[in-house]
Amino acid sequence: MPSETPQAEVGPTGCPHRSGPHSAKGSLEKGSPEDKEAKEPLWIRPDAPSRCTWQLGRPASESPHHHTAPAKSPKILPDILKKIGDTPMVRINKIGKKFGLKCELLAKCEFFNAGGSVKDRISLRMIEDAERDGTLKPGDTIIEPTSGNTGIGLALAAAVRGYRCIIVMPEKMSSEKVDVLRALGAEIVRTPTNARFDSPESHVGVAWRLKNEIPNSHILDQYRNASNPLAHYDTTADEILQQCDGKLDMLVASVGTGGTITGIARKLKEKCPGCRIIGVDPEGSILAEPEELNQTEQTTYEVEGIGYDFIPTVLDRTVVDKWFKSNDEEAFTFARMLIAQEGLLCGGSAGSTVAVAVKAAQELQEGQRCVVILPDSVRNYMTKFLSDRWMLQKGFLKEEDLTEKKPWWWHLRVQELGLSAPLTVLPTITCGHTIEILREKGFDQAPVVDEAGVILGMVTLGNMLSSLLAGKVQPSDQVGKVIYKQFKQIRLTDTLGRLSHILEMDHFALVV
Rank of each mutant, 00 (worst) to 15 (best):
P2L: 13
P2C: 14
S3M: 09
E4R: 07
P6M: 15
A8V: 13
E9V: 10
E9P: 13
V10E: 07
G11P: 01
G11F: 04
C15L: 09
P16C: 01
H17C: 01
S19E: 15
A24F: 14
K25N: 12
S27T: 12
L28A: 10
K30E: 14
K30D: 13
G31W: 12
S32W: 11
P33Q: 11
P33L: 07
E37R: 06
E37N: 06
A38M: 05
K39A: 08
P41D: 01
P41R: 06
P49Y: 01
S50P: 08
Q55F: 01
L56G: 01
G57D: 10
R58S: 05
R58E: 15
R58L: 08
P59L: 11
S61N: 01
E62T: 01
S63L: 04
P64T: 01
H65I: 05
H67F: 10
T68Y: 06
A69H: 06
A71W: 01
P74K: 15
K75W: 14
I76K: 15
L77I: 05
D79P: 01
I80H: 01
K83P: 08
P88C: 08
M89S: 01
V90M: 01
V90G: 05
K94S: 12
K94T: 15
I95V: 09
I95K: 01
K97F: 12
L101R: 01
L105E: 01
L106S: 04
L106D: 01
K108S: 04
K108Y: 10
A114R: 06
G116R: 10
G116D: 11
K119L: 04
I122N: 01
S123C: 04
R125F: 11
E128A: 01
E128W: 08
E131F: 04
R132M: 15
D133V: 15
D133S: 05
P138V: 07
P138F: 10
G139Q: 09
D140I: 01
I142V: 12
I143C: 01
I143W: 04
I143F: 04
E144K: 14
E144S: 05
E144V: 07
P145L: 04
T146I: 05
T146G: 06
T150C: 03
T150M: 04
G151A: 03
G153A: 01
L154N: 05
R161W: 07
G162D: 12
Y163L: 04
I166L: 08
I167V: 01
E171L: 03
E171F: 01
M173Y: 06
K177S: 01
V178T: 06
R182G: 10
A183S: 14
A183D: 01
L184V: 04
G185Y: 01
G185L: 01
A186T: 10
A186L: 04
E187R: 01
R190E: 01
T191Q: 01
T193Y: 09
N194K: 14
D198N: 13
P200F: 07
E201L: 08
H203F: 07
V204D: 06
R209V: 08
L210R: 01
L210V: 05
N212P: 04
N212W: 07
I214S: 01
P215A: 07
P215T: 09
H218C: 13
H218V: 15
L220P: 01
L220G: 03
D221V: 01
D221Q: 05
D221H: 06
Y223P: 01
S227C: 10
S227F: 09
Y233F: 10
Y233M: 01
Y233I: 01
D234V: 01
T235F: 13
A237V: 13
D238I: 07
L241P: 01
C244R: 07
G246C: 03
K247P: 15
K247D: 01
L248V: 13
D249A: 14
V252L: 09
A253F: 06
A253V: 10
T257P: 01
T257R: 12
G259S: 11
T260R: 12
T260M: 05
T260V: 07
T260C: 10
I261D: 10
I261V: 13
E270R: 01
K271Y: 07
C272D: 15
C275E: 04
R276T: 15
